[in-house]
């Protein structure tokens, strides 16, 4: 073996390095083997397992939610038939003459949500189209964080606004409007949801690649035509997801309706009446002092299960829509 491992050191730099090569065993741990280092391997696996458990914990939360709602509801449905629950038109579980029909709560939820969506979806979409396709850069840079800030205002504050500002204002125009109404709560809920809808819709529209817009402009289309005929269809899945999120927020919203819509179960489709929603009923019971394990206690879990199922349907719908509309750019 004639070759030499040592270099002919040429420069100062190289001398240092050659010297280092010689005594590198003093400094850098010697490389004994290429084989797997078990201690290191075990440590890595332990860390990975811990992180995995943290991620798995989110699945545990879902299971816990479902388990808790279903197990308490099961006890409830031993007392009340599913038929009565779904078809009875009265919800008076705390009265002597107890009725357990969820319909009045569902109607309150649906009406307040429809009012909210009638406000949030069109206004949110218009704002999104304006910000994404029309607004100058500076306006967008200011409006976007502003909308984000508004999305962060606590819902109890919006409830205060509905009860003490919007309702009196509405009563000025419609003197017959009662102090609590689904209309007032729904309107404010709609305003509250605008930032969510507009921000997500705008994100979806901005992710449409520029060359699609340029193609449209090149054929002589105006901004509005480009927005409506090219950008909106291309970002349909994102817009649908934004709408679904808006719906699911309206259905699950609690404080605004609790404060401004009253807590009386009322089977009505008229937004100018006061009515309880599923969420306000849960709050109402929680505010009282119902003993753990009583039928009254179980009703809120049955109501909660209904709410969860409704939001779940919308979440699945959103998921399917997104798959259906999956754009290929």
């Amino acid at each position: 073996m004639k070759f030499s491992r040592r270099n002919d050191a040429k420069s100062e730099d190289m001398k240092i390095s050659a010297q280092n090569m010689d005594n590198r065993n003093d400094v850098v741990p010697a490389y004994k083997s290429l084989r797997r280092n078990f201690r290191r391997h075990i440590k890595e696996r332990i860390i990975e397992s811990i992180l995995f458990l943290a991620a798995l914990f989110s699945v545990f939360i879902t299971f816990a939610i479902v388990y808790m709602l279903v197990s308490e509801s099961m006890v409830f449905f031993e007392h009340v038939s599913l038929r009565e629950f779904l078809t009875d038109t009265q919800w008076t579980p705390l009265f002597d003459d107890a009725h357990y029909g969820i319909l009045p709560l569902v109607s309150g939820t649906v009406v307040s949500s429809l009012v909210a969506l009638a406000v949030a979806l069109p206004l949110g979409t218009i704002i999104a189209i304006y910000l994404s396709e029309f607004a100058p850069f500076a306006v967008r840079e200011i409006a976007k964080p502003f909308l984000e800030l508004l999305g962060g205002i606590p819902t109890v504050v919006y409830g205060y606004f509905a009860l003490l500002s919007v309702t009196p204002l509405l009563q000025y125009f419609f003197p017959d409007l009662p102090g609590f109404s689904l209309l007032s709560a729904g309107l404010v809920m709609g305003i509250m949801i605008i930032p969510y809808v507009s921000s997500m819709t705008e994100d979806a529209m901005r992710s449409v690649p520029m060359h699609l817009r340029e193609g449209s402009y090149a054929t002589g289309a105006t901004r509005f035509q480009t927005a409506v005929k090219v950008v909106v269809p291309a970002s349909m899945s994102g817009i649908a997801a934004a709408y679904i999120l808006g719906i699911s927020r309206a259905v699950g919203e609690t404080m605004v309706v609790t404060i401004a819509a009253g807590m009386q179960p009322n089977l009505t489709w008229n937004p100018t009446e006061p009515a309880a929603t599923i969420t306000t009923y849960i709050v109402q019971v929680s505010l009282g002092d119902l003993p753990h394990g009583s039928i009254g206690y179980q009703t809120i879990f049955a109501a909660g299960l209904t709410l969860l199922l409704i939001t779940l349907i919308f979440n699945i719908l959103g998921h399917l829509l997104r798959k259906y509309y999956r754009e290929v750019y």
Binding site: Y31, S33, L34, R35, R36, N37, R40, H41
Partner: peptide, 9 residues
Amino acid sequence: AVDPIEVRM
């Protein structure tokens, strides 16, 4: 059997 980390070292 060889640890890629040992290789990269």
